[in-house]
C-alpha cells in the first residue's frame, strides 16, 4: 500500500480579519494512505474545515505543500484547481448543499457536465450513483421533497458521480438524526471498502468516528492524537 496518497507537509495557514491575524495551522504534517478512511475530530475552530479546504483545493496555504495522489495541489493556480477538483475529489457537506431547483438526478448529473460524456452516458452514470446510495426511486424528486438523510445520500451520489479517488466530508452527519446518520455512515464505509475511495471525514460524532479506520484529533491546529482502529 503506497503510504502517502495525501500529504500535508509543513503546512501553515492563518487568516487575517479586521487587522488581527489568526494562525489556524502551524507547520502541520499529515499523511494519509490510499484507500484509508480517516475521521478528523477536534473542538470547534481547531482548523478541521481548513484542512479539508486545503486538501480539496478550495483554499491555499501560506507555506508548506499539499500533495494529493501525484499532484501538488498547493502549487496549482486558481485557474487549474477547478478542473483538478472535478476529476479527483468529491465533496460532502454538513448542510448537503444540493441545488434546490434541480431534481435528485439532475443534481448528481451536474458534475458530469464537466466530463466528455454524452448526455445519455451522463444520465446512466448518475443513475448508477443514485443506485449506489439506494435512491433510484427518488431520482425525479426535488431536494425539498426529500428527507435530510435522503438529501445527504443524493449529495454523496453527486460526490462520487465522476468517480474521484478522494471523498472529503465535512460533518456529513451533523444535521441528521441517528438512524439517517447511520445510513450515511454505512454508505461511506461501503464506498471505502468496496470502491476503494480514500475518505477524509470531519466529525464531532464518536459513533461516526468509530466507522473510520483511523481517527485524528486536532487541537489549535496541532495533531494531538492519531489512532488506528480495527473495523
Amino acid at each position: 500500500m503506497p503510504d502517502k496518497f495525501i500529504t500535508l507537509n509543513n503546512v501553515s495557514k492563518s487568516y487575517t480579519r479586521g487587522g488581527e491575524t489568526l494562525k489556524v495551522l502551524d507547520q502541520l504534517h499529515l499523511s494519509i494512505a490510499r484507500g484509508d478512511f480517516v475521521a478528523l475530530m477536534g473542538p470547534s475552530g481547531s482548523g478541521k474545515t481548513t484542512i479539508l479546504n486545503l486538501v480539496g483545493g478550495l483554499d491555499s496555504c501560506d507555506s508548506g505543500s499539499v500533495h494529493v495522489a501525484d499532484s501538488e495541489v498547493s502549487a496549482m493556480s486558481r485557474s487549474e484547481l477547478p478542473a483538478w477538483r472535478s476529476r479527483h475529489v468529491g465533496f460532502v457537506f454538513q448542510s448537503f448543499n444540493l441545488l434546490p431547483v434541480l431534481t435528485a438526478l439532475e443534481n448528481v448529473m451536474l458534475p458530469l457536465q464537466l466530463t466528455p460524456l454524452s448526455a445519455a452516458e451522463r444520465k446512466k452514470q448518475a443513475a448508477f450513483a443514485l443506485d449506489i446510495v439506494g435512491l433510484t426511486d427518488r431520482a425525479s424528486h426535488r431536494p425539498n421533497q426529500l428527507s435530510g438523510g435522503q438529501e445527504q445520500r443524493v449529495a454523496i451520489a453527486r460526490a462520487i458521480a465522476t468517480d474521484p479517488a478522494v471523498i472529503i466530508a465535512d460533518e456529513p452527519t451533523g444535521d441528521l438524526d441517528r438512524s439517517s446518520a447511520d445510513e450515511v455512515l454505512q454508505i461511506l464505509s461501503r464506498l471505502n471498502s468496496e470502491l476503494g475511495k480514500t475518505i477524509l471525514m470531519v466529525t464531532h460524532d464518536l459513533v461516526a468516528a468509530k466507522k473510520a479506520k483511523r481517527v485524528l484529533e486536532l487541537d489549535k491546529g496541532l495533531l494531538v492524537e492519531d489512532q488506528q482502529q480495527e473495523a
Binding site: 477547478p82 477538483r85 472535478s86 476529476r87 465533496f91
Partner: peptide
C-alpha cells in the same frame, strides 16, 4: 453566491 460555491466545489469555474 452559495450556489456559485457549490458549483466551484464540483469543479466549475
Amino acid at each position: 453566491l452559495q450556489e456559485s460555491g457549490i458549483l466551484q466545489a464540483l469543479g466549475f469555474r
